[in-house]
């Protein structure tokens, strides 16, 4: 059967023919690598869109936040929305603040700590969402060439077995099998190269965004701490 395929291959060396004449293992590898490539690009597009959106939202929020608008008002407008990034951090911190004052918290240090915790949790959740699926990019980037190579080795093995069967070392007999096997490596590289590049780029972007969030959290924490001191001191003085 391999021989027949090889003989037919001498006339047709198009991509589709190369794929169709490959063994099932090589076919599986190729299909898997194609899927990986599709997935890589899906992640790339998704991340690109998400990061751009996140960056835009950060900018907008910072603008609003530093515009001198009342934090209470800002909280009221944001609290009933689905927030991401800095807004989520702000909302989480404000929610914790509100809860503490509604119940009449007495310890300013405990309040400060709770607000920081709430912001940390939100930051880590947001950062996780930024870095989500970047791991699969890394996996595809590192494993793709190996998977392709595996397909190539299997393909060359089978084609050599076919050569041994046909007892001909004519290049026209040998070449299609090798070309077909090499196609697997090619697809592996096609999937892996964008994956590696995208992984590095999006990891950098995600790091920058989390840095921004942490910076904002620190600043907001400082603001809240000042507010806590201002609000608690008159009370203590009154006591």
């Amino acid at each position: 059967m391999e021989q027949v395929a090889l003989e037919a291959a001498t006339h047709d060396v198009s991509l589709w023919a190369l794929f169709m004449q490959a063994g099932w293992v090589v076919k599986l590898v190729m299909i898997g690598l194609m899927g990986a490539s599709v997935w890589t690009w899906a992640i790339v597009i998704d991340k690109y869109v998400n990061f751009a959106k996140a960056r835009r939202q950060f900018d907008q929020f910072e603008q609003v936040f530093w515009s001198g608008q009342s934090l209470e008002e800002l909280y009221r407008t944001l609290s009933d929305r689905q927030n991401v990034g800095m807004a989520a951090i702000f909302v989480a911190a404000m929610r914790e603040w509100k809860k503490s004052f509604e119940r009449g918290a007495r310890a300013p240090i405990g309040l400060q700590m709770r607000i920081d915790r709430a912001m940390d949790v939100t930051i880590s959740r947001e950062a996780e969402s930024f870095e989500a699926r970047l791991g699969s990019l890394a996996t595809i980037g590192s494993a793709g060439p190996f998977i392709g190579l595996f397909g190539t080795v299997i393909g060359i093995m089978t084609s050599f077995q076919a050569i041994a069967g046909s007892k001909s070392t004519n290049l026209a007999v040998v070449a299609p099998g090798i070309a077909e096997a090499l196609l697997a490596t090619a697809i592996g590289l096609v999937a892996a190269i964008p994956a590696v590049i995208a992984y590095n780029k999006f990891m950098g972007d995600a790091g920058k965004l989390s840095g921004r969030m942490e910076g904002f959290a620190d600043e907001f924490s400082a603001i809240l701490s000042r507010q806590i001191d201002e609000k608690l001191q008159p009370r203590q003085a009154a006591q």
């Binding site: 991509l15 589709w16 194609m34 899906a42 790339v44 597009i45």
Partner: peptide
């Protein structure tokens, strides 16, 4: 989902062109 769909569409386009 949208980005997966876009990715699949892109791959089909590229493969079709390659074919």
């Amino acid at each position: 989902k949208g980005s997966v769909g876009t990715s699949i569409a892109l791959h089909t386009l590229v493969l079709g062109w390659a074919m």
